[in-house]
Amino acid sequence: MRIIRKDNKGEAITIAAFFVLFAAVAITFQIFEPTFLTWDSVTTMLKTGATTAIAALGLTFVIVVSHSDISFYMTSCFSSMFMAWLISLKIHPIIAVAGGLLMGFIWGGISGIAVGKFKLPDIISTIAIGSIAFGAAYVFSDGAFIYEEFHTSGIINLSEHRFLGITVSVWIMLVLYIIAYFALDRSKIGRWFYSTGANKRAAFFSGVRVNQVIIAAFIVSGVLAALAAIIYDAAQGQGNVKIGMNFLMPCFSAIYIGWSVFKKPCVIGTFFGALISTVITTGFTVMSIPYYYSDLTMAGVLILAIGLSKMQFKSKESDIAKPDDKAEGQVAQA
């Protein structure tokens, strides 16, 4: 696949700005809690952040084609429970993980076909499909934790094994982000996704297979959410039926924080968004502030981020936009 080159000057500045923001948040927590920025705590933070980041990466694809997926966090419960169930049957962990990912693929495909092929309204159909998946997740153990064979099978290594001092899950996250960056920002495939998101009709008449692109986006979302839930299960050492229920807010926050700075939903933006939301949540946990205050803060940050993304978009619109920017602006309109 030919790599598309582009001018990176603007992007470099925004990334730098992001690091300043990031440092500001981290230093604020460091002042209140001196153990916040030790090596141990940073690696733990990356470990917890990896799951959110992976799930958010999948959701990014759906947001890029200007749809919404409310099923990913519920289908991930099913996929990870399926994986845990396979593990408890003494099946090799690699096959079990593959099975879990396959379930993510299937549920994502169902949502994708409902939205892409049958043109059902995206939000409400994914709520329905996700709820069915969540109900089905109770079939394996009637809602109880599955922890048989978990510690002996080696599945724990998916989260705990360290390579160069960093856990495997973080490496997986980084590799996925690099692949996604080249796929979405630097290749023809990425243009299909963005053009579908900008205007379906125009994309269709430009030779993009709109329906397939939408289905693909939902499948990516389903698979990556499943992977995130599987890694989270591995970290907890048990199959938990409600494992994905906390993904919804952080994932949307990550994407919108990224959107607010990069003016379009994109891979790098999601990465930094996930990083910042992880730092904030971990900071609150380290300072032993109850979860609901960190949720409250994240909701505030989300609202603020959307506001910023709108502001950027407005100022872009009032200029006579460069053709490239204009296309991005239309993505933001969704």
């Binding site: 919404s68 409310i70 939000i123 919804l248 807010m249 949307f252 919108y256 109850p290 979860y291 609901y292 205050y293 949720d295 409250l296 994240m298 909701a299 505030g300 989300l302 609202i303 959307i306 506001g307 709108k310 969704a334």
Partner: peptide, 19 residues
């Protein structure tokens, strides 16, 4: 704002206050 995202945020606020 997009109403879906807004209400996700507002529901989180309401949930947090309730908790």
């Amino acid at each position: 704002y997009h109403s879906l995202i807004t209400t996700i945020a507002v529901s989180t606020i309401a949930k947090s206050v309730a908790a």
